[in-house]
Amino acid sequence: MVGELRQVAFLLWPGTHPATVMPALAVLHAANRMAQAELYQVHCFTLDDQPLISAEGWQLPARPWSGEWVRHAQLWLVADSMLLPSSIPAGVAKQCRILVRDGVPVGALEGGIYPLAMSGLLDGHRCAVHWRMLDDFRERFPAVIAGNELFQVDRGRLSSSGGQATLDFFLSLLAEERDPDLAAMVAEELVVERLRDGSERQRVPLRNRLGSTHPKLTQAVILMESNIEEPLTTDEIARHVCVSRRQLERIFKQYLNSVPSQYYLELRLSRARQMLLQTSKSIIQIGLSCGFSSGPHFSSAYRNCFGITPREDRNQRRAQQAMDVIVRV
């Protein structure tokens, strides 16, 4: 259970919330404590000389990266999903390539997947990306095989979609690198009810999101989510799930307090907003891909739903991101 000491380094981009890396640190520190031995020596680095302090006022101990790197068993790039990196320093990219050449695993937590992809080391590899960032990531890095799994390991490239998935990932690594029994003890210590496999999808099961287990409702919503670009009519949905139109409308009213057509419209608009804020696709392209026949039709429906036009919403988001950079960097 003891084994050799393993060095683990986390390189955090400016603006990263300390909570992004805390699940990983919790597992590693708990492993040392439960094994009553120093299995892991953890190092946290920043790209600047600013302390990592959350908005709530708590600070993560870290020291600036000087450009000189000691040999680590694992290197993790970490960034906040709300302040995604726009570049990777040449020295960091070089160090990542050296580690990969030497057979040392290189990983990314949450937004850290962006600089890792920028290094070119993910081309042709599978990785896990948080579902909110997935469209943007796929558009920017078409050579990378990005998925919405919880976490992914592919030929020395490690990736976690973030949040609770990072806890699952490091428990999985602990079981593989050290001892499944130790991983179980750490999971129990951290009050983890179930160890999730990396291949599990990130999104909450549909029936949980709907707050209902009604099979016809679930089938209808799955159909809607699968037909965003070319929406089905309410009659077509009812026919596919083998109920009458009136019965389908009663089910939606009872469980969602909505009618199928309105729920479907809001679903398409939510999808459009996600694309609008995460990708560089034109407003016309987004509207068409979400089932709207024209730009004015899309803009009108969007404004009625969100109280703002698509262009205004995108411009406000970009202005806020620019302000965040000024405030945090």
Results as ranks from 00 to 15, higher is better:
175 A>P: 04
264 Y>A: 02
234 T>N: 08
237 I>R: 01
257 N>L: 13
276 L>M: 05
222 I>E: 14
178 R>K: 11
183 A>W: 05
255 Y>F: 11
290 C>F: 04
180 P>I: 08
297 H>K: 12
297 H>G: 13
266 E>P: 03
286 I>Y: 06
229 E>D: 09
219 Q>M: 13
241 V>A: 12
190 L>A: 03
297 H>R: 12
259 V>N: 08
272 A>H: 02
174 L>H: 08
264 Y>M: 00
183 A>Q: 11
242 C>F: 13
273 R>Q: 15
304 N>S: 14
259 V>G: 10
238 A>G: 01
206 L>G: 03
276 L>R: 08
234 T>D: 09
298 F>L: 01
177 E>M: 11
188 E>H: 10
234 T>F: 03
203 R>G: 07
301 A>K: 07
202 Q>K: 01
282 S>I: 09
288 L>S: 10
298 F>E: 02
292 F>N: 00
208 N>A: 13
235 D>H: 10
196 R>G: 03
191 V>H: 11
256 L>E: 05
286 I>N: 03
192 V>L: 15
220 A>N: 06
227 N>G: 01
287 G>Y: 05
239 R>K: 15
185 M>T: 13
271 R>S: 14
304 N>E: 14
301 A>R: 09
260 P>D: 03
299 S>F: 05
215 P>H: 08
191 V>P: 02
187 A>D: 08
203 R>C: 07
176 E>I: 14
281 K>C: 14
192 V>D: 03
295 G>H: 11
182 L>D: 07
304 N>M: 10
252 F>T: 02
302 Y>N: 01
231 P>F: 00
224 M>T: 00
185 M>P: 05
180 P>M: 05
239 R>M: 12
237 I>E: 00
263 Y>W: 09
240 H>R: 15
229 E>V: 01
265 L>G: 01
215 P>R: 10
272 A>T: 01
276 L>K: 06
286 I>R: 02
211 G>F: 08
225 E>L: 15
263 Y>F: 14
245 R>E: 12
234 T>A: 04
245 R>M: 06
293 S>E: 09
234 T>E: 08
285 Q>W: 07
178 R>T: 14
218 T>H: 11
265 L>D: 07
257 N>H: 13
256 L>K: 11
195 L>W: 05
278 Q>C: 09
203 R>F: 11
298 F>P: 00
301 A>Q: 08
193 E>R: 14
256 L>G: 10
249 E>L: 04
198 G>C: 07
259 V>H: 11
267 L>T: 07
283 I>C: 01
262 Q>R: 13
273 R>Y: 05
200 E>G: 06
235 D>R: 12
200 E>L: 14
248 L>Y: 03
213 T>Y: 07
264 Y>N: 02
204 V>F: 11
254 Q>A: 15
185 M>W: 11
197 D>N: 12
303 R>P: 03
230 E>Y: 06
255 Y>Q: 12
286 I>E: 06
291 G>F: 00
213 T>R: 13
217 L>T: 09
290 C>L: 07
